[in-house]
Design a protein around this nucleic acid. Structure first.
Lengths: 205, 205
DNA sequence: GGGAGCATGTAACGGGTTACATGATTGG
DNA sequence: CCAATCATGTAACCCGTTACATGCTCCC
């Protein structure tokens, strides 16, 4: 089946990136692929990764083929061969339906630091500590960035929901920071336990 | 470049799944692909997704080609054509080096619920609330599961680090639950604000 | 007898990335 | 003038998934 369906098949079945891009356009502004990339970088990035530019252009092509967006070349006043995209009524319908009806799935998380802590028996305890500390600092920095994003979103009319999610992101990264700190404590306890145990019944491996 | 390098090229450059699988084997037990899948399902799943079985078999093949694991057919006592894999000294070296030297990268998160909250202007407020509440409940359930995993890991010798990470996971999902609750509050405030505003200056799409 | 679980894979597909190509405009 | 940024894409690649095929064994 499939093989280039004629038009809007079952709207529900698009990759997340397509919905993300269409979602960015649902704020009713005309945007270029380049704009979309930048915007994704400083909003979606916090709770959803930011797709590669090439991917954005590919999704835009698909969305246009489905009739969910239209494009025009911005000429005259704006010069450059810049293609501006806008959401269509069909696109608005489709994304509304997706937002409302897509099933609630567990967030997907790939936590490299946690994976390596899980394999802690393979690492030098000090190095492990270092990694977790670095992660804690990264989280703190991201919390800061999200805080900034939230104030600038709060200042814009019609951006109440983005502002709300920015606040959520800020809290998320603050929590991540706390979790890292607690893990550091646990690592210290564990390292201590191992050290004393080794003192009694020395070396193996 | 590349095109089936003769042997252990630069060990650092394997997909995460390969390291995850090798990591599971680093606990020094002989495991089948099937075993690995099950184990991944109830440990890695919490902080790193669980790969498809087919993927696990593929990675095992690759790891064997690289000399990081060996396999033998478990016959006699165990019957069935079950292939058991074990880590080799080279594999132990490689994964140790990965755990210690791989750069600390930000965890990758794809939070569907957050994305849809970000697009809250496209949803019925009640439905949005429902979705976030469902996510909160899912998180609570996952926290429970992680708690169980942590007690059973704590009971096993040599599993101190997995136990530590299970504890971390439990806290993570508890935090996720709290974040969802706070988002619900924020959504209520926002919905109220919109309702009163609309009462003064009525409707517009 | 038959279904649930054990066990190992193959094939096709697709989503997403990196690397690359190209060119135009702006500002120091 | 040259670097940075704007701007749009193509090509190759690979990770990972779904769907499927196969067969065995355990236990009700």
């Amino acid at each position: 089946m499939s093989s280039t369906a004629p038009a809007a098949a079952s709207p529900q079945e698009l990759p997340p990136t397509a919905w993300a891009v269409l979602g960015l356009l649902s704020f009713e502004r005309e945007l270029s692929g380049y704009d979309l990339k930048k915007w994704a970088d400083n909003s979606l990035r916090f709770f959803y990764w930011s797709p590669a530019s090439s991917q954005i252009y590919a999704e835009l092509k698909r969305l246009e083929r489905l009739g969910f967006v239209t494009s025009r070349i911005a000429a005259q006043d704006d010069l450059r061969n810049k293609r501006l995209f806008a959401i269509t009524p069909a696109g608005r319908l489709a994304i509304r339906s997706w937002v409302q009806h897509a099933p609630v799935e567990p967030p997907m998380l790939k936590h490299g630091v946690a994976l390596r802590a899980w394999l802690g028996h393979l690492a030098d305890p000090a190095r492990l500590r270092e990694m977790v500390a670095e992660h804690r600092d990264n989280s703190a920095a991201l919390a800061e960035e999200a805080a900034h994003a939230s104030v600038s979103a709060a200042a814009t009319k019609g951006w109440e929901y983005p502002a709300l999610v920015s606040r959520w992101s800020q809290r998320y990264f603050e929590a991540e920071q706390r979790l890292a700190e607690e893990m550091l404590d646990d690592l210290d306890v564990l390292a201590e336990r191992i050290r004393t145990r080794r003192r009694r019944a020395p070396t193996s491996t």
